[in-house]
């Protein structure tokens, strides 16, 4: 059985699907990605589907499941490079991929993840700061 390679680039795992996957290959990718997220501690996953000339409901569901699993493992997923004809067909099929972030290409997908991570880190710092300021106020009142 063929396997889709998962590449680590900094804090991001990059997957570029270059083959017409049988269902088992898609399921294997789901497992491989979960393992690699945990092993590397990466916070982002970019899945490039620009080489896919169709996305059917099985692959669509697999992408949604990967996004959900990644989220639970503290990583965000962006699906990039969908062809226009694939987008038209997916929507007509009834699959609008709710819960999946998309970007037009790998570069924009990586920018999106970097931006979101930066916002997230800022919020964490702000939250810490507020806690620090409020705690004494609660005790003195």
């Amino acid at each position: 059985m063929e396997r889709v390679p998962v590449l680590k680039i900094g804090d991001i795992l990059l997957v570029s699907i270059q083959i017409d996957m049988e269902d088992q290959v898609a399921l294997q990718l789901q497992e491989d990605l979960a393992d690699r997220i945990v092993a590397t501690g990466c916070h982002g996953v970019v899945i490039d589907i620009s080489a896919l000339d169709i996305v059917d409901s099985f692959v669509g569901r697999t992408l949604a499941t990967i996004a959900a699993i990644s989220k639970v493992l503290d990583a965000d997923t962006v699906v990039v490079g969908m062809r226009p004809a694939v987008a038209i067909t997916l929507v007509e099929l009834g699959l609008s991929l709710p819960g999946i972030r998309t970007a037009l290409n790998v570069e924009l997908g990586m920018e999106l993840l970097a931006r979101e991570r930066a916002d997230y880190d800022d919020e964490e710092e702000d939250a810490d700061g507020e806690d620090g300021a409020e705690t004494p106020a609660v005790f003195t009142s």
Partner: peptide, 29 residues
């Protein structure tokens, strides 16, 4: 792959090729 080859041979548009290959994938599964 077979449906894609035939769809190209009869000159379906790119969107229609995509639709018929996707439909074939769903129904074959």
């Amino acid at each position: 792959q077979l449906v894609r080859t035939l769809a190209v041979a009869v000159k379906l548009s790119l969107v229609d090729q995509t639709k018929i290959v996707t439909a074939a994938s769903e129904l074959a599964r």
